[in-house]
Amino acid sequence: MLYRLMKYVLIGPLLRLLWPTKVSGTENIPTTGGAILASNHLAVADSFFMPVRVRRMVTFPAKLEYFTEPGIKGKLKKAFFSGVGQIPIDRSSGSAAQAALDTVIRLLNEGNLVGIYPEGTRSPDGRLYKGKTGVARIALKTGAPVVPVAMIGTDKVNPIGSKMWWPRRLEIRFGAPLDFSRYEGLAGDRFVERSITDEIMYTLMELSGQEYVDIYAAKAKELAAAEAAGVRPAVPAQADARAADRVPESKAG
């Protein structure tokens, strides 16, 4: 009920009015059953503009911090994020990461549309970065089709570091669903999961027209911060690199 109120009465009409958006490919979104909407990630605004253009409810796993802030402001934020289809995910530990995967798998098995950002965080410069393999693992465990989504122009509406949303024309492209049933039973095979993830990212590159960068967006941010501080960043251990690959973020980080 709260989701419908937000989408059709409060937020949806406002976004449609102030930000004219060209939308194509909505026929590629399944009308029933679970499906993954795998999107590039340019801005916090992505999680608001895309669901408004989809008939079905879209659920995005979100940072737990959005739901736990104390006081009246915290309660309002919790109501807001719940109302736009977000669910809280604790990502503070390895077990929490697995819990996030399990939550997304449960939602898909229940027949929901789930939004996922395979890059794991917002692009720092508008380019498309290497995807985390969690999206592949989820697809393999659920059999859900993966619908690639290209958000175009949201980084101009809501630039990183800006608290303002600026009037710009946007475009959202929904690509043809990707079917990975040929890999059924191979969840956990890291080579298969990497192959699937790379196919998703290649499709997103073609759909969005973005330049592709073969490193993780989080690593790119780390390197940029280190360079700005004049510090030589440490090379992560192999175990840390593997751990960073597990869970695709589904809300701006």
Results as ranks from 00 to 15, higher is better:
1 M>C: 06
4 R>M: 02
6 M>E: 06
7 K>W: 07
10 L>F: 12
11 I>R: 12
14 L>P: 06
14 L>N: 01
20 P>C: 14
21 T>I: 10
21 T>S: 14
23 V>I: 15
24 S>L: 02
24 S>F: 00
28 N>K: 12
28 N>I: 09
31 T>Q: 15
32 T>H: 08
33 G>N: 05
34 G>I: 09
34 G>F: 14
37 L>E: 04
37 L>Q: 11
39 S>Q: 07
43 A>S: 15
44 V>Q: 04
53 R>F: 03
55 R>V: 04
55 R>S: 12
56 R>D: 10
58 V>A: 07
61 P>M: 01
63 K>F: 02
64 L>A: 15
64 L>S: 09
68 T>C: 01
71 G>K: 08
74 G>Y: 04
75 K>V: 06
79 A>G: 14
80 F>D: 12
84 V>R: 00
85 G>P: 04
86 Q>M: 15
88 P>T: 05
92 S>E: 06
92 S>K: 09
94 G>W: 01
94 G>V: 08
96 A>D: 14
101 L>V: 10
106 R>A: 10
113 L>I: 13
115 G>N: 08
116 I>K: 05
118 P>F: 01
118 P>E: 04
118 P>Y: 01
121 T>R: 01
122 R>D: 07
130 K>N: 00
132 K>I: 00
134 G>T: 12
135 V>R: 02
135 V>F: 02
136 A>Q: 02
138 I>L: 02
140 L>G: 06
141 K>E: 13
150 A>Y: 01
152 I>C: 13
153 G>W: 04
153 G>R: 04
159 P>R: 11
160 I>W: 02
165 W>C: 08
170 L>A: 15
174 F>Y: 14
176 A>T: 14
182 R>T: 11
184 E>P: 01
184 E>F: 00
186 L>P: 08
187 A>W: 02
188 G>L: 08
194 R>K: 14
197 T>F: 00
206 E>K: 15
212 Y>C: 07
215 I>R: 10
219 K>H: 08
219 K>F: 03
220 A>Y: 01
223 L>T: 10
227 E>D: 14
231 V>A: 11
242 R>F: 13
244 A>G: 15
246 R>W: 13
247 V>R: 01
248 P>H: 10
248 P>S: 05
250 S>E: 06
250 S>L: 08
